[in-house]
Amino acid sequence: MMRLLPRFVLLAMLALAGVAHAQAIEPMPFANHAQELRFQHLTAQLRCPMCQNETLADSNAPIAHDLRGVVFKLMQQGKSDEQIKQYLVARYSDYVLYDPPLQPDTWLLWFGPLLILLGGAVVVVVTIRKRHRSGSVTIEAPTGNGDDW
């Protein structure tokens, strides 16, 4: 019995986790399952403007509830995912997109890591060439009197 107890606790916790997650998403009158999946997929790509570390799908904030309603309404009107995103971006800026668009003010964001990588490569190449030119590629043993560090 004592060995089973942890399993019961685990099961109970798993069940509660399911409840906690389901709370954020109130039932909506979807026409079919495909539409529901599309809704879940789309709202998971959009950021709640109020609580900025949560998606529209996960957030319990009042504005997230309202914006889920807007997404649902626009879907019923036959708008594409792209049109729905544009609708929200026009009101809440690119902030609502988890995937930032590639445009001049995000170039640094997209290509910055590449620049740093290239910088590192330059340092490595320069160092190797220097060592090569000095005639030795082996690491020299410290020759100081021990005060170096």
């Binding site: 914006l67 009101r91 809440y92």
Partner: peptide, 13 residues
């Protein structure tokens, strides 16, 4: 009361 018009203003709180 519904907050629907506010969405057009980009209000989120």
């Amino acid at each position: 009361e519904s907050g629907q018009t506010a969405i057009n203003f980009g209000v989120y709180g």
